[in-house]
Simulated assay, not measured.
Amino acid sequence: MSRNAFPESWDYKTDILVVGFGGAGACAAIAAADRGADVLIVEKQAEDGYYSNTRMSGGAFHSPRPDGNRDVLEAYALAMFSGDNLPWKLEGELPSAIASELAAAWAEYAPQNLAWMQDLDPEYSAVEERGAAFPEFPGADESAYRVLRSTYSGEINNKNRCQKDDPKSVTESGEAFYTCL
């Protein structure tokens, strides 16, 4: 529906309202719907010209190997989320209780990211781009941390080529990530 097609006022009832249909919004909507919630997504871009930042991105995501040491992954995540180990502190410091809870959740759920994407579409694949972003943080190696890049072609050769509207089988990077969602 285009912006001009919206009525002056409207009333919808929903369990979950997701604002924005990029990667995060799509993941939130899918997870909520899978748990039985009635989900409504609102997006500011017109449907006929929609092209999210996720589709233009590198399609990379974090998914430590599931066989890694969870306690060590939590220590690594705490080093990231606390801000204490980042001299430039772009993200700022989180209170330690929040950083600890976030690190525990990250260590529990992040290793499931690749499997979750592959459950959405068994044809989806990912290739390892690199390990831990902060190799000097505690647990960087032992945590089995990895950053993956999305692909349907099995490669990531075309990450700088526009793949909008390409067949699914040749998409890579952000277009492949979004296609899976």
Rank of each mutant, 00 (worst) to 15 (best):
L78H: 10
I30T: 08
E101G: 14
S143P: 10
T171L: 11
F21H: 14
R35P: 00
T171H: 02
P7G: 14
L181K: 09
M56G: 09
P138T: 04
G83F: 01
E74M: 07
W106A: 12
A75V: 03
Y51W: 11
A31E: 14
V72F: 04
Y124Q: 05
G83Q: 04
Y145G: 06
E8N: 10
F21D: 08
F21K: 14
P135D: 00
A79V: 03
N69W: 00
A37F: 05
S57P: 05
A97W: 02
V170M: 08
W88R: 12
Y124H: 13
R3N: 13
V42Y: 05
T54V: 03
Q112L: 04
K164D: 00
A37G: 04
S125R: 15
G68D: 02
A126P: 12
Y178M: 12
A176P: 11
E91M: 14
A32V: 01
A104C: 00
A107E: 01
G49W: 06
I98W: 06
P95Q: 12
D34A: 07
A126V: 07
M56Q: 13
A132K: 10
D141A: 13
R149C: 14
M1A: 09
E123T: 15
E101I: 00
I41Y: 02
E43L: 08
I156D: 15
Y50N: 11
S82V: 06
F6P: 09
L148R: 07
N53C: 10
R55K: 11
P64V: 01
N160T: 15
R146N: 02
S52C: 15
G59A: 10
F81R: 08
M117H: 14
S169F: 07
V19D: 02
A75Q: 14
L120W: 10
C27K: 03
H62P: 01
A24F: 06
M1E: 08
N53S: 13
S150C: 00
G49D: 13
N158T: 11
A37E: 06
N69F: 00
A32H: 05
A97S: 07
A33K: 15
A24K: 05
A133Y: 12
L120S: 09
P135E: 01
N160I: 07
Y124S: 11
S153Q: 09
Y51S: 14
L40I: 12
M117W: 11
R146W: 02
A28I: 01
Y50A: 15
T179Y: 13
F21P: 04
K164N: 04
R65G: 06
E175D: 08
A29W: 04
I41W: 03
W88A: 13
A5E: 14
N53P: 12
A115K: 10
A32L: 05
G83S: 02
R70E: 08
L148W: 06
L73G: 07
